[in-house]
Each structure stands twice: as C-alpha cells, then as structure tokens.
Amino acid sequence: MPVAAARPIVLTASERHRLKKAAYGHKTEHQARQRATVVLHAARGCSNARIARETRLHIDTVRTWRGRFAHGGLLALADRKRSGRPARFTPVQVAEAKALACQLPTETGVPLSRWSCPELAAELTARGITDSISASTVRRWLHQDAIKPWQYRSWIFIRDPNFRATAQRVLDLYARTFDGEPLGEDEYVISSDEKTSIQARCRCHPTLAPGQARAMRVNHEYDRGGALAYLAAYDVHQAKVFGRCEPKTGIVPFMNLVTQIMSTEPYASARRVFWIVDNGSSHRGKKAIDRLTTAFPNAVMVHTPVHASWTNQIEIFFSIVQRKVVSPNDFTDLTQVRDRLRAFEDRYNATAQPFQWRFTTSDLDDLLARLDRHTPADRQEESSVALAA
C-alpha cells in the first residue's frame, strides 16, 4: 500500500521566529516544544521518518502535527477542546459551598471562630450537600472568587458623632485650608504624636550580617536595657521632622516637644501654627487646647476623630522609623537608641519630601457611605440611642 507523501511546510519569518522561541525557550511546556520542533524540521524538508528518529517521537505523532500545522498554522498546534471527565459536583453544590464559607461558623451552630478548607469540606459532607469532598477541591472553588474565610482583619466601628466634621478639618489642613479659607505663607501645619516603649534589646549574640543565600540573623535571646518614648512632630508641607526622647509620655514631655519647636523660627513668629494631635491623654480635650494656647498664642490644636489616628500623618513617619530604625531591635543601651533616632532624623530631613496624601473629603464621604451600607439597621439605632444618651 503506497504511503502518502509528507505535507510540505513553508514558514513565514514571523512563524519561524515564534516556533524557534517555543522550541528553545526555557519556560516552554514540553509538548509545545516537541510540536514546534517537528514543524521546524518539516520546514527544512525532512521526511517524517527522519523527524521521528531525531526527535524520538512516533512517526504517527510527527505526521499528525505536521498535518495540523499545514492545515491550520500556529493555532492548530494547540490542544483541541475535549469533553473531559463529567463534573462530579453540580453548580448548585459549588454555590452552597461558597455561601457556607461566607457565613460565620457560629451563625451555623459550629463551634469555630474561622472556617478552614478541611472544616468546610467536613461540614459540607455532614450537611449532606456533598457525599464526600476533599479540602483541595473546596480551596479551588473558593480561589475562583478570592474567598478566604480563614483570614480576618480587625477594625473599629465609628462612634464619634462628629466624625466627618472633625476629620474634614484635618483633611482641609493637609490641603492648606482652614474654615474655608486658604492658609497663608506664614501659617504651618504640624502633625505630632508619641511612639511609646521603644526598648533597648541587647542580643546575647551579635547580629550577623547577610551573606550569600543567607538573610541577616538576629539572636532570639536578649537582655532588656530599658525603654523610652519617642515624641515627634512633622511639618506636613515642609517635610521636616522634629523629635525628642523622653523617659515616658505625658503632658510635660509633650509640652517640651511643643516648646522645642515653637521657640524656633519660622514657627515662633508665624501667624498660626496648627498642631494635629490624636486623643491621647497627653493632649486630650479642651484643657489641652487651652494649655497650648496659653503657652503659645499663635498655636492652634486640632484633634483627629476618636479612633482615627490614621488621619495623622506622623503615623506614616513612625511606621518608617519602625521599619528602618527599630526593627530588628538590637541596641546595647538606651543611649544608643537615642543616638540612632537623632541620626535618622538628620538623614531623613536631608532628603525628605512631603507625603503624597491623597485621601480627600470626597474619599471620606465614600468611606462613610460604604460603612453605612454594611452597618445593620438595628446597630445604627443602638448607636444613635447611645450618642443621644
């Protein structure tokens, strides 16, 4: 019986480039590499038998892919759609599994704090939703909608009745506006707070520098060398930090920081200097406002909303200090901690630029509207009653 002649293959420059990339690429799948190699050999005029010998493939395999490319080009080298094994689980079962994962375990009578994939698989079987199912199958279903019931985030419900108005004053100051009027050139905005309990942990073994294929190593055991408080103030628009270390926080240490800044120029002769602070005990309430104004008449204290320290830009600087100075904590004594913090202030002020603060009053309105949508009506009523009381 005569053997059919091999299909001739003629490649364009683009096809040859893509086939070579597939045949010799390090990340190409093995099957795709084999198919591309077959076509490249065929384009050189090799017979199917010779290609089979050189690629160690069956001649029928060579004939198949040569023929497919001759008929359909590069797209024909991909796998054809297959029916595959019939689905074991119905779409309804998949939807019920996702719905269960989106419920708190306590709401369903299960004594768990969070769902895990094995627990979800066991619960689906116990409820008769599925006969038997593996945790990996549940994990694959949840991955489709990015559902991760084993993770959680903590948050604080807004209880301040004047949250929006208080937050708007802070956000307006960041935009150089106060009470609807733009700030002048001789008006400044200072963001300040305290970072408490910075410890001096003297490691029992010196910290080892990183090396080839090795991270920096910090000994787990340490001796305590005491702790101090780091008070800092950040000029929002000038991107300048002023800091001081104190044995502990309090009214006196905070006023020491205020005096340190307000006694120097340009703040001493400024028309107004706005001090943005949270509701900590060192600067809380009307007494703190009066205390500041009495000491420095051109100083104006502006409080952030309760439980909203994230609106205070100094917290961004503190996060930088935590990452770049404090962690990992390996100091011989508190003197070394103080020296390191002062040196970092000088280094930071030499190159600092104002933070790109993008959270505006419009974003604040969107946030509050989103929280209202996710707050049950009965809880809103309870909050209203509590605020009225």
Rank of each mutant, 00 (worst) to 15 (best):
D172S: 14
G73E: 09
S197P: 05
Q260G: 10
Y188T: 09
T166F: 01
A87D: 04
R7T: 15
V10H: 10
A377F: 04
R203F: 03
K324Q: 13
N48R: 13
V321M: 06
S191H: 04
Y348K: 02
N48P: 09
Q356I: 06
Q212V: 12
G250F: 03
R176S: 03
L142W: 01
L19F: 04
T335M: 13
H143Y: 12
R66Y: 08
I59L: 10
E381C: 04
V110M: 05
R56A: 08
G128L: 11
Y152G: 15
A295K: 09
M301W: 08
Q168G: 10
V302F: 12
D372L: 06
E381T: 08
C102N: 14
V277D: 00
H374M: 06
F242A: 07
P149R: 05
G225C: 07
E96W: 10
K287T: 09
A389F: 04
A268I: 08
V321E: 04
L120N: 01
R340I: 04
T361C: 14
P182M: 07
E382G: 10
I51A: 00
A308T: 09
S14E: 10
L183G: 05
P149G: 12
A101W: 02
Q31V: 11
A97L: 05
R82C: 12
L367P: 01
D60Y: 09
Q212P: 03
E221A: 12
F317Y: 15
R203N: 06
A95K: 04
V94H: 07
S327P: 07
K148V: 13
N329W: 05
Y348G: 03
S113Q: 11
D131I: 08
S197W: 14
A299G: 13
I251G: 00
R53T: 06
A213K: 09
R347W: 15
W150G: 13
D160S: 08
P8C: 06
T90Y: 07
R340A: 13
H71Q: 13
T28G: 07
A227D: 08
A135P: 02
R244E: 05
S281V: 00
S383C: 11
L57S: 11
G225V: 00
T61G: 08
S197E: 15
H283V: 00
Q238R: 15
G25V: 02
A122D: 03
V252L: 15
W155G: 11
A4P: 00
F89K: 05
V138Q: 09
V10F: 14
T196P: 02
V92Q: 05
S362D: 08
A4H: 06
F344M: 01
S263D: 12
G180R: 02
I320R: 11
Q199N: 05
P247D: 03
A288L: 12
D278S: 08
K20N: 12
W275Q: 15
L367F: 09
K240Q: 14
P105D: 03
F318C: 01
R68G: 07
F344R: 00
A52E: 03
G25Y: 01
C202N: 14
D223E: 14
A165T: 10
P253R: 04
L171A: 02
A386W: 13
E181C: 08
